[in-house]
Nucleic acid binder design. Structure first.
Length: 928
DNA sequence: GACCTGCTGCGGAGTG
């Protein structure tokens, strides 16, 4: 019994808690940690991982003593919300055993921070970013000298991210600072590459043990595709929804009612809103709420608490509830629509049933038949033990720059060789050469303001003079880029039509571009740093859908397996075979078989690419290679065809096919030839070709900008609108900024290595290319899916669409309200009638300031206080109408003037006048 | 024949 190995005081505390039996990860991990090993614990959220790590550490603290003042344990989690949950959990043990436990992150107030630096806690819970800051304080650095244990929670989340790379270098720096090694315990959900993740956590050359709990083994997984019953049809008629939709909603209701507590995961925020809306619309008595990142922190916390208390029976969530935030016990997870990836499925379903004996239960509800096939494949892969491999960023230069600055803050001068030896121990930089490091350091010297000074003769790097150096560091504590949102404003009416992401603006945000938004075509007339102005047009031809980005990427392995499933059916597998092999019920299996059989002609599968002459000017390449490979292939084919034809070539793709379209005729044979040509190209040539195509894209500009900001080469305030693409590319070409942006794009947006593998299989004739002179069934399905994006919705359908329409994007339009009398501040929702009284002191002198999506409201208040004061007057005089005014982006002075003229007029008159004013204003700006 | 069209995360210290 492993608990007997623990210190007697810990055992007594266990008894007090009523814990008698260890969970599986605890039983396996406790002895290893007690022996002093570095350990990575892989087990689902809620299986007692925190205690598995902390009980032996507490036990060792009691044995070894903690006489010196200082921090003995660092507990790092990627979320502030987890920090808070853990504080409650660990503090209980601290109180029993005589250790101070504290938390420190962006929301921690000044008094607490000061208290901590004077009287350090024995155990400090914090975020990776705050660790960066903590390591610059003289006093706190002294406290850190005592660090003996570091626990990193949710390692899988950090390992794939630059945040994690930053942490890996911070831990190496911490080791240098304390002058010895410390014991590391990592906690992770199920991952595809446990050894890689462990190496990432521990650093190069340090031994470790991995403790793994097999989650899939007793996970209960089902894929269902409900068919409408008579009752569903009836309800559909009365509710105005479609029978299929009603069938799915009623299935969800039934499942929610059968269980005590259910999590419903969806893939997008708008789907969360839509599903939440429809459930409460059809079943007003069903206690369901919605949870995603566009909702304010207050709303989210309240949803979490109501679920925990049992006031809510279910929550519809995006990945916002994937990590281990405490929401109490969950009996069932519903995944609405295919999760696309095995890791996502396991992580999400793993949130249910975590008591010792409870079985995690997951039901995937498929939407259409393709969706069901993919879901079945994901389940099969999971059951077979497949998980997508973990991709750890490979020696990113931007994080390196950031951390060299941090090293220079710790010690003002370094021999490059010494620095190099430390950096190389961080796993992402295992292959870094000293020449590369020197190049990056020289680049830092060339920046203005300088981020480093390099001395050639002694080969040393030193801290530069001046404030710019410190400013850069404190402004760049985080590797997460600030993503801006742009208001879409109807320049005729001045109405706020909605909001678009930076990614769309980067790619297409130019005057003259036509795009589809909220079901209608619009023309961009003007773009500035916060909004785009548009006019409605009638002709949708050539318009770009505003949601142009694809869905969550479907991995290569999943897409290939879907191809194999098609082949199984073509080779004569019966519904019974399919049901057995793919864990779907027989009804679903029967439909899968029927669907595949509808396809006549050559069938695209895992080993067959079919090039189809779909229209005279449209060629479809059926390829079951997944999102990233198809995107790469699409770019390559597009680039070759543009060179050949010297005219525009449109390329769209999804995980199972690529659609190529030209203005004039395009022969399928020509596309086949290009594919063959690619298969015979050298890898180096392919890489060059893809780089050429990549650099042209707007998304590359965006990456370049983010990277440049992280490297201190571009001001933090710059945005995709204010910086010219060509200048950016020109300025950074040949520098580490450019190299890093390219590397990141190749690593995240494309998949060159699997593409090369596919091309080699084509060359070796393991993958056949077949030709179809006519449109096929699967071609129709694919074309339909990608082309109806451009469809215009007739007015009679618009009403329902508006009724359903999600406010997810508009929810981002939250404003910050500040009471100028008592200092209260909080979020104010645009468009809601707002009581202009301070909830705290009742005062009416409240100011509002620009859209924020920040949890750190205090900082926003500090930054924007002057603007807040200006708006307060407008609001006090014009009530909630003032909010509308402020959201309309008219200059404040102009609004003030008109409102003063119309003082006392009724609201409609004022609204009308403001709209007129906006029109004039916009017209004038257009003429300018 | 319509329903839908990627998510999440962070943010100075210590002294004056």
């Amino acid at each position: 019994m492993v608990f007997n190995l623990l210190h007697v005081a810990v055992r007594e505390a266990l008894k007090e808690r009523g814990i008698e039996e260890p969970t599986e990860p605890q039983a396996k991990a406790i002895p290893e940690i007690l022996e002093g090993n570095n350990v990575l614990i892989i087990a689902p959220t809620g299986s007692g991982k925190t205690e598995a790590a902390m009980l032996p550490i507490l036990s060792k603290m009691l044995e070894q003593g903690t006489e010196n003042a200082g921090i003995y344990v660092l507990y790092i989690t990627p979320l502030r919300a987890l920090n808070r949950d853990l504080l409650d959990r660990i503090r209980w043990w601290g109180e029993r055993l005589g250790f101070r436990v504290d938390v420190r992150h962006g929301d921690t107030d000044k008094a607490d921070r000061q208290r901590q630096s004077k009287t350090p806690p024995h155990i400090l819970i914090t975020t990776p970013e705050m660790l960066q800051a903590v390591m610059t304080g003289r006093r706190l650095l002294g406290h850190l000298k005592e660090v003996r244990w570091v626990v990193v929670d949710e390692v899988h989340e950090l390992a794939e991210d630059k945040r994690g790379v930053q942490l890996s270098l911070a831990l190496e720096r911490l080791r240098y600072h304390v002058g010895r090694d410390f014991q590391i315990v990592g906690l992770s959900a199920t991952v595809g590459s446990p050894v890689e993740v462990a190496k990432f956590l521990m650093g190069v050359g340090r031994p470790f043990k991995i403790v793994m709990v097999n989650v899939v083994r007793n996970m209960q997984l089902d894929v269902v595709r409900p068919w409408p019953s008579e009752e569903d049809v009836k309800l559909a008629e009365s509710s105005g929804l479609f029978p299929d939709v009603v069938a799915r909603l009623r299935l969800i209701k039934k499942l929610v009612e059968e269980n005590r507590s259910t999590l419903i995961f969806v893939n997008t925020r708008s789907m969360a809103e839509l599903l939440g809306f429809r459930l409460s619309y059809l079943f007003p008595d069903l206690p369901v709420a919605v949870h995603h990142s566009s909702l304010s922190k207050m709303v989210r916390v309240s949803v979490e608490e109501r679920l925990k208390k049992g006031d809510l029976k279910a929550v519809v969530a995006t990945s916002s509830l994937e990590l281990g935030i405490d929401i109490g016990h969950i009996d069932l997870v519903i995944q609405y629509i295919s999760p696309h990836q095995v890791t996502r499925l396991l992580q999400r379903v793993g949130r249910s049933g975590h008591r010792l004996t409870a079985v995690p239960k997951g039901v995937i509800i498929g939407e259409d038949i393709n969706d069901v096939m993919e879901a079945a494949v994901v389940v099969k892969l999971a059951k077979n033990g497949f998980i997508e491999p973990t991709q750890i960023p490979y020696k990113p230069y931007d994080v390196l720059v950031n951390q060299i600055v941090a090293f220079l803050l710790l010690k003002p001068r370094w021999r490059l060789e010494e620095l190099y030896e430390i950096i190389k121990r961080a796993y992402p930089y295992r292959d870094l050469t000293i020449e590369e490091l020197r190049r990056v350091v020289k680049f830092m010297q060339d920046l203005y303001p300088r981020l480093a000074t390099y001395f050639e003769d002694s080969d040393t790097v030193a801290r530069p003079r001046g404030r710019g150096f410190y400013r850069y560091f404190y402004e760049t504590l985080s590797m997460i880029p600030d993503e801006r949102q742009y208001a879409v404003i109807n320049s005729k009416t001045g109405e706020l039509v909605g909001a678009l992401d930076e990614s769309f603006i980067a790619e297409y945000g130019n005057p003259g571009v036509k795009f589809i938004f909220r079901g209608r075509p619009w023309l961009i007339t003007e773009v500035d740093d916060r909004s785009i102005k548009v006019v409605e047009v009638s002709d949708p031809s050539g318009a770009i859908p505003s949601w142009i980005g694809e869905e969550i990427p479907v991995p290569y392995e999943v897409a290939q397996e879907v191809g194999r499933l098609r082949r199984r059916v073509r080779e004569g597998a019966t519904p019974e075979d399919i049901a057995r092999e793919y864990h779907v019920n027989e009804e679903t299996a029967k439909h899968i078989v029927e669907e595949v059989k509808k396809h006549e002609g050559p069938l695209p599968d895992d080993k067959t690419v079919v090039v189809e002459q779909f229209r005279e000017n449209v060629v479809i390449v059926h390829a079951a290679f997944g999102t990233l490979v198809n995107r790469t292939l699409g770019k390559l084919l597009g680039e070759l065809l543009i060179r050949l034809l010297e005219k525009p070539v449109g390329v769209h793709q999804d995980p199972y096919g690529i659609i190529i379209q030209t203005s004039e005729a395009l022969a399928a044979e020509l596309v086949t030839e290009q594919l063959e040509k690619l298969a015979w190209m050298e890898v180096r040539e392919i890489a060059e070709l893809i780089k050429t195509a990549l650099v042209k894209s707007g998304s590359f500009k965006r990456r370049l900008l983010h990277v440049a900001k992280r490297m201190g080469a571009v001001d933090k305030e710059a945005d995709v609108y204010s910086v010219s693409m060509s200048k950016l590319v020109e300025a950074f070409s040949g520098t580490p900024v450019f190299d890093e942006a390219l590397r990141e794009a190749l690593e995240r947006d494309l998949d060159l290595s699997h593409t090369v593998e596919v091309l080699q299989r084509i060359k070796a004739r393991e993958v056949k290319i077949l030709y179809s002179p006519q449109p096929t069934y699967l071609g129709e399905v694919l074309y339909e899916k990608l082309s109806h994006r451009l469809e215009i919705i007739p007015p009679e359908r618009l009403r329902r669409l508006v009724l359903d329409s999600t406010k997810a994007r508009l929810l981002n339009y939250t404003m910050l309200g500040v009471c100028l009398e008592c200092g209260w501040y909080g979020l104010v929702r645009v468009g809601e009638v707002y009581e202009l009284r301070c909830p705290k002191c009742g005062g009416e002198n409240i100011g509002v300031v620009r859209v924020v999506r920040s949890d750190n409201l205090e900082r926003e208040v500090r930054r924007n206080y002057e603007e807040v004061k200006k708006t307060a007057e407008i609001l006090r005089r014009y009530g909630w109408l003032g909010l509308y005014v402020l959201a309309s982006r008219l200059p404040l002075e102009a609004v003030q003037e008109v409102l003063a003229q119309l003082d006392g007029a009724d609201i409609n008159a004022v609204t009308e006048r403001i709209q007129e004013l906006e029109k004039e204003y916009l017209k004038q700006r257009l003429l300018d």
